[in-house]
Design a protein around this nucleic acid. Structure first.
Lengths: 200, 200
DNA sequence: GACGACATACCGACTGGTTGGTATGCAAAT
DNA sequence: ATTTGCATACCAACCAGTCGGTATGTCGTC
């Protein structure tokens, strides 16, 4: 039996991704985690504190997932980048929308203006992940497109924008395939970017 | 002096885009609109009803904005498409985040699972706008890339995904320039797509 | 190794304020 | 005379957060 803190964090990942931050009540979190309100406020000094902790927890989970993902195994960084994009598409398969979508993107929409601590936590997670992709893009650019005018950092952030935007369309249509379609366009964009660079 | 209904709808556009749907209370809406709660429930039978009406109101406003935008003036549909993308980037200039971002994308994140009526209203607005872009893309494709394997509808939805995703990154960093950067990548993608097709 | 001092983990009843929503009234327009 | 467009007053449910309490360690000290 995991401790109450872990159970609350897992409940937060699930419920916040389903209903959003504001619509998630502390009582519902406790009910889902099977703990009492006393336990909640023993471990988190406020609901906001839980949200920040959940973002850090999320970063830990996804960080491990991406660090051990197979796209690192390719020698050519461009192959790694394409494989990363394919990996992101694969992560949608067999999952429901709350299971496939991003906690940070969901939370930041509701909190960017009213809750700086949560916004910062979300940005840290997204930017941190984008940095790992920027490293791959930087290497791919050095090898295959040294004269390209776009920056690795900007393209890395763009990959995250496409993925987040795909999630919004998927939620709107209630169909994760919309997210996959946008990821396929992203894949084609990256291919064209490097294909174009090789022609020069 | 506009009637209470209009004042409430305008307040909804402003406050929901700033704080999200759930965090926006009926009382706050009334306060901002300068009307009483009686007026609210006279015009809208529930908060959900207001959200659906606000989505329709938003579609009316943005529909007019895009229908009269200058990107229609180009003869070549590919020029129209590029000009549309530039127009979307231009719409960010001199605006705050709540002023620049999309009501539908914001609302659907919180309501896709819990409130089908709002989700449908959001999807209708996004898909309806995407359809107008798909028409342009279809014409551009017929003229410049008849053999391309991607569909006009899919690319049109992708443009919306990029824009929505850019908004999320912008909110996370508290900087609209992130949205503009992604829109510039989208512009480059479209150029490469058609540039590539012309080479065949 | 027994003892007291203190910390950690958790419980659940309670509170004051806020929530979405209702019931009723009333003046102007049709 | 009835409908429309609001305002006032009110309500039960729910909200995040508090608080007094208990059970279970885990130290240092004699």
């Amino acid at each position: 039996m995991p401790p109450a803190k872990t159970k609350l964090l897992n409940a937060a990942l699930k419920i916040v991704r389903t209903n959003g931050y504001e619509a998630t009540s502390v009582d519902e979190l406790c009910r889902d985690a099977g703990v009492t309100k006393g336990a909640f406020f023993h471990h988190f000094k406020s609901k906001e504190d839980l949200a920040v902790a959940a973002a850090a927890y999320w970063n830990g989970m996804t960080g491990k997932l991406f660090a051990t993902a197979p796209y690192h195994d390719y020698d050519d960084p461009l192959d790694q980048l394409i494989a990363y994009i394919d990996f992101r598409a694969m992560l949608l398969e067999g999952r429901t929308i709350p299971e496939a979508t991003c906690l940070l993107g969901t939370m930041v929409q509701e909190t960017y203006d009213s809750n700086p601590a949560i916004r910062e936590a979300c940005f840290g997670g997204i930017a941190g992940h984008a940095d790992t992709i920027a490293d791959i893009i930087r290497a791919a650019k050095a090898r295959h497109a040294p004269k390209a005018t776009w920056s690795a950092e900007s393209l890395a952030l763009h990959t995250q924008a496409v993925i987040q935007g795909g999630f919004i369309l998927a939620k709107a249509k209630n169909d994760l395939m919309l997210a996959r379609d946008s990821i396929l366009h992203l894949r084609r964009y990256v291919e064209l970017l490097f294909h174009h660079a090789k022609e020069d």
